[in-house]
């Protein structure tokens, strides 16, 4: 790992679909760069040929019978909707 690039906080926030105020960008910038600077130490290690760990205790082939079973009913699934109509979530218009 080389020294970290300057983080484009506003661009990354856009990827995360999260608006940030100017003051937040200014506050986050040095904090994120400090943390990213800290993790550079992983560059000291030779990890050639080491398998990545995605789960510490691998569990394979978790299958169940393909049967219809009861699940949350529609009204319960909709009960927390900020805006709903006729059993559907309402979102802003996407296509004209």
């Amino acid at each position: 790992m080389s020294s970290p690039d300057k983080i484009d906080v506003r661009y990354v926030a856009h990827l995360a679909r999260m608006h940030l105020a100017d003051g937040e960008v200014a506050r986050l910038q040095p904090q994120l760069e400090q943390i990213v600077g800290y993790v550079q130490q992983l560059g000291e290690l030779n990890v050639e040929g080491i398998e990545p760990t995605a789960h510490a205790i691998p569990v394979q082939n978790v299958f169940r019978a393909d049967e219809v079973r009861p699940c949350l009913d529609h009204d319960a699934a909709m009960q927390n909707a900020p805006l709903a109509r006729e059993g559907q979530f309402i979102v802003p218009k996407i296509i004209e």
Binding site: H14, R17, M18, N80, A81, P82, L83, V91, P92, I94
Partner: peptide, 17 residues
């Protein structure tokens, strides 16, 4: 969209943000 706070936006992306 499905639960919790919603702040209205001009389009879905703006709403998420």
């Amino acid at each position: 969209v499905r639960y919790g706070l919603r702040v209205d936006g001009e389009d879905p992306i703006d709403q998420y943000g």
